[in-house]
């Protein structure tokens, strides 16, 4: 009886100190599912090099990540959009000073079903399709088929960037099908002949046809050069200027090796 209790206590103590024994320092990261693949992979490589550091990375969305940073429960928040005014106000009132770090660029490709003969759309045409002014492919040089507009739900970071760059603040037609993820958009576009959608550059595949926008096809080169119009920077936020292990990890992501990881995950590196 006493012995088993002793074991139990020993076990509990071990559990308490396991962090100290196996990893002396830890980082908790949370936020955008767009930024997740880069940070996740970077964390794995970083931990291999620094076995005494423990990094845990979670998704959940940009808003969730920033909210967690504001509550001071994480070290780094991933975000596919810049922090909003109301979030900054809320942060300051809590004594948190969010600092943005640009870590990569994400291009947003406009995709259609591979059987659709249309291969070039102007920004104006895309805007009209998404606001519901153009509803048939024949109006943009395609077959006589109804356009099925696929969008991301209005709180996704990808949507916000698309809305800002392409729609310039106008409303997406209420008839648009809202999907909750890049994967969801791909799913509907590949199975629907009349569909149009938009996904991060990392999600392009032969099952989708990426249209040229204003005559420029989406690629790493055209995004870095600024020719491809629908691109956005990806951020991570820290509370105050990063120090110690946080700074070291961010430097790693911004190093040539870290940027190569971002590129391997399908994003566009900063340099």
């Amino acid at each position: 009886m006493i012995r088993s209790k002793l074991y139990l206590i020993l076990f509990a103590v071990l559990l308490l100190f396991s962090n100290l024994i196996f990893a002396s320092e830890s980082l908790i990261i949370q936020g955008s599912s767009t930024v997740l693949p880069i940070v996740q992979k970077a964390a794995e490589v970083y931990m291999e090099k620094n076995p005494d550091v423990n990094i845990s990375v979670r998704g959940g969305g940009s808003g969730t990540g920033i909210a967690a940073l504001l509550d001071n429960v994480i070290d780094i928040a991933n975000s596919s959009r810049f922090i909003k005014d109301e979030e900054v106000q809320s942060a300051l009132s809590k004594g948190i000073y969010p600092v943005p770090h640009r870590i990569a660029i994400d291009g947003i490709a406009v995709v259609i079903h591979p059987d659709n003969p249309v291969d070039d759309l102007s920004m104006e045409e895309i805007k009209k399709i998404y606001t519901g002014e153009i509803t048939n492919w024949k109006e943009v040089g395609g077959p006589d088929r109804q356009i099925v507009v696929i969008s991301r739900d209005s709180s996704s970071g990808t949507f916000e960037v698309f809305e800002e760059i392409v729609l310039e603040g106008e409303k997406v037609t209420a008839g648009a099908l809202l999907q909750t993820s890049n994967g969801g958009v791909i799913n509907v576009v590949t199975s629907t002949k009349g569909a149009i959608g938009y996904v991060g550059l990392g999600y392009l595949s032969p099952a989708l046809k990426a249209v040229k926008v204003n005559g420029v096809s989406p690629s790493k080169e055209t995004i870095i050069s600024g020719q491809f119009p629908i691109a956005r920077p990806l951020f991570i936020f820290t509370n105050g200027w990063p120090e110690g292990i946080t700074a070291d990890f961010i430097n790693f992501i911004l190093s040539a090796e870290g940027q190569k990881i971002a590129e391997e995950q399908g994003y566009v590196p900063l340099f």
Binding site: G63, E86, S155
Partner: peptide, 23 residues
């Protein structure tokens, strides 16, 4: 026609919504 029931809206939008906002 496609529809968007209430439950789907909550589930789809909650993850990216800033906590405490009107949304």
């Amino acid at each position: 026609v496609p529809v968007r029931p209430m439950t789907a809206s909550i589930a789809a939008e909650m993850g990216e919504t800033p906590v405490g906002s009107a949304h």
